[in-house]
Design a protein around this nucleic acid. Structure first.
Length: 110
DNA sequence: CCCTTGACGCGTT
DNA sequence: GAACGCGCCAAGG
């Protein structure tokens, strides 16, 4: 496992997020074994936007707030994409976040 | 090479 | 229960 593959791992996990589901930076970081490095996951996501296969819009912070929406092509794009997948967003925050939460630790099994 | 910033998270006040 | 501060890691200036 190359150290540089960390970003790639983040992309891989993000790609595994099903439609209508969302996860948090910390959840991905924890799954990769660097749970204290959620910020780095966010940074990785920044590059993930250029990767068309990575649904960065399905990754939010631990409280379900679209903290990164401002980094997308359009500030409203993230909310639009989530809404299109059945994830309701209210005031930049995902409604029933726990209900839509997709934990790689559980879903992928660790 | 040192300092600052950032799509986070948790503990403390 | 909201606000604040510290820790972590990587990138840019």
């Amino acid at each position: 496992m190359d150290k540089d593959s960390f970003f790639k791992d983040v992309y891989e996990v993000a790609k595994l997020i099903p439609e209508g589901r969302v996860t948090s930076y910390g959840a991905i970081a924890a799954y990769l074994g660097v749970k204290r490095s959620a910020r780095v996951v966010g940074w990785a996501m920044n590059g993930a936007i250029t990767e068309h296969d990575v649904p960065a819009h399905r990754v939010v912070n631990r409280i379900g707030v679209l903290s990164g929406k401002n980094h997308f092509q359009s500030p409203t794009l993230m909310e639009e994409m989530l809404a299109a997948e059945g994830v309701k967003v209210k005031n930049d925050q995902i409604v029933n976040f726990e209900k839509h939460f997709w934990d790689p630790m559980i879903e992928l099994g660790l």
